[in-house]
Simulated assay, not measured.
Amino acid sequence: MRCPFCHNEDSQVKDSRPTEDGSAIRRRRQCPSCGARFTTFERVQLRELVVVKKSGKKEPFEREKLAHSVMIACRKREIEPERIERLISAVQRQLEAMGEPEVEAGQIGELVMQGLEQLDPVAYVRFASVYKDFREAKDFETFVGGLSETMLKGE
């Protein structure tokens, strides 16, 4: 593994352990050249996924991009980082389990919406506002009006 600090081609693994949900291996590494320590995560990838955008453009699936959009929706919410990580891993596993090499961007958005609906109502609405391209306040009103009382109360 290349050192992110000095770009030395080699690093030594100092500690390895599974993540809480068991979906990855966390490795603490040290660069023998500059002595810097850093962490890497190793995940099982069942297949290479390609995302087909609304425009028809295709690009490789990037877990980091998915994680970034979920983190934005969950910003300043009292949600444990482990729960967010489990949601991201679950979405990725569902996409890989579909067995298709290409997935529509809309399918990813729907899976994230399903997960956020269970996780946090505010994060759910935030994500929906971008995913469903809300243009005005009335869009929020209509969307929130369709949510169940149970969800809004967080039960």
Score class of each variant (00 low, 15 high):
2 R>F: 13
3 C>R: 13
3 C>W: 14
4 P>I: 02
6 C>I: 06
7 H>D: 07
7 H>M: 12
8 N>F: 10
8 N>I: 11
9 E>V: 15
16 S>F: 07
17 R>P: 03
20 E>C: 00
21 D>E: 07
27 R>Y: 07
28 R>F: 09
29 R>Q: 07
29 R>H: 04
30 Q>V: 14
31 C>R: 03
33 S>D: 15
34 C>Y: 14
35 G>S: 03
35 G>L: 02
36 A>N: 07
40 T>Y: 08
43 R>D: 06
45 Q>M: 12
46 L>R: 09
49 L>N: 06
50 V>D: 00
51 V>P: 09
54 K>D: 11
55 S>L: 01
57 K>C: 10
59 E>M: 02
62 E>A: 15
64 E>M: 08
64 E>A: 15
65 K>S: 01
68 H>W: 10
68 H>D: 14
71 M>C: 12
73 A>P: 12
74 C>T: 10
79 I>S: 04
82 E>V: 14
85 E>L: 10
87 L>P: 12
89 S>F: 11
90 A>N: 13
90 A>K: 15
90 A>Y: 05
93 R>Q: 11
97 A>E: 11
100 E>W: 01
100 E>Y: 14
111 L>Y: 04
111 L>Q: 06
113 M>T: 00
114 Q>V: 07
114 Q>T: 06
115 G>M: 06
116 L>Q: 04
117 E>Y: 02
120 D>V: 08
125 V>H: 11
130 V>K: 10
131 Y>K: 07
132 K>R: 15
135 R>T: 12
138 K>L: 03
142 T>G: 00
147 L>G: 09
147 L>W: 01
147 L>H: 09
150 T>S: 14
152 L>Y: 09
155 E>M: 11
